[in-house]
């Protein structure tokens, strides 16, 4: 899944991208480079600007300022070249529900300029490649959610694109269907295609080579999943004691800073394994349960922005904006 196609231009190159709607600034100067052959995830809460960024890359909206290139083609001046070279799966359905899977793919082939015979052949290939034989001759509306999403994926693959955009492509699917979908995507990535995706499911983001965190229309961090997690500070210790209040007090006195609130005590530390034995021995309160885990991507986001993905924790004073939701 590492860069397989050596080439001079990046898969996606975004510089100083700004998108302003009437009053809302959805993107406030985004810089981003996705390498060829990379699995790249874009994470952030609703309204952070993910869908706006994808719409611009997919040539559906024009940026207010800045530039964006897909496989070296400018999304404004070289629109048709971008359209020809990418495939995209939207959050909402973009297939004709009353037509069969085969007809949907056939039509997309026609829209991409294939002749009737070539479009027919391409549709048959894709149905086979994505295990959609059952969906071929049934109207899309009669398919299961998982099959419909796969059909969306097949639609995005009609032109055999070198880059694939997935905008929360698996939202609302059950675990099995999501696994099936991602197995297909990983297969595509393994053949050297670039996959640029957003998701709400953290475990899906774990498969990315690199992750960008976006908040209030700006990239707040960009790194490998592992490197992002080490930014939190190593590990998270969770303690359940007989007297949490007393334990908190003691921990604070001893220079450890437990996070405020919660049923349990949460403690972020650079090296939990080194500090934990000593801690358990000297803590004057009986510990009922202890848990050590790697920081999750959500912990990373919390640490970097002071808010969770759900946006429930209020924005601390001093952070710019405070506008949340609205522009997606």
């Amino acid at each position: 899944m590492t860069a397989a196609v050596p080439t001079d231009s990046a898969a996606v190159e975004v510089r100083g991208l700004v998108k302003r709607y009437d009053k809302v600034e959805a993107l406030r100067g985004v810089d981003l480079t996705v390498r060829r052959g990379e699995m790249f995830a874009l994470l952030g809460p609703n309204g952070a600007g993910k869908t706006t960024l994808f719409s611009i890359l997919a040539t559906l909206r024009a940026p207010t300022a800045g530039t964006a290139r897909v496989l070296g083609h400018d999304v404004v001046t070289d629109r048709d070249a971008v359209r020809r070279s990418m495939g995209i799966v939207f959050q909402e359905p973009a297939i004709e529900q009353r037509l069969t899977g085969r007809d949907n793919l056939l039509l997309m082939g026609l829209f991409y300029g294939l002749g009737s015979a070539a479009a027919r052949q391409r549709a048959a290939e894709l149905l086979k490649q994505l295990d959609l034989a059952d969906a071929a001759d049934r109207p899309a509306k009669n398919l299961s959610g998982g099959q419909r999403r796969k059909l969306e994926l097949a639609r995005a693959l009609v032109t055999d694109p070198q880059i694939l955009f997935l905008d929360e492509a698996t939202v609302g699917l059950d675990v099995d269907a999501r696994r099936g979908f991602w197995a297909q995507v990983r297969g595509l990535a393994a053949t050297g295609r670039t996959v640029f995706f957003t998701t709400h499911y953290m475990e899906e983001a774990e498969v990315a080579d690199r992750i960008a965190l976006i908040d209030h229309g700006q990239i707040v961090a960009l790194d490998t999943p592992q490197a992002l997690k080490t930014r939190v500070g190593g590990g998270v210790i969770r303690l359940q004691t007989e007297d949490n209040a007393r334990a908190r007090g003691w921990l604070t006195e001893h220079g450890l800073a437990p996070e405020a609130g919660g049923q349990e005590i949460m403690l972020v530390h650079a090296d939990p394994a080194a500090v934990l034995p000593e801690l358990l021995r000297t803590l004057p309160v009986k510990v009922q349960r202890v848990e050590v885990h790697e920081p999750s991507l959500e912990d990373v986001f919390l640490k970097l922005t002071g808010r969770g993905f759900d946006g429930e924790t209020p924005v601390p004073a001093g952070r710019p904006g405070g506008r949340n939701g609205g522009a997606a």
Partner: peptide
Amino acid sequence: QIGFFKAVLIAPV
């Protein structure tokens, strides 16, 4: 409203 045309709009048509 249904969104099929979104797919058409990103085709080079």
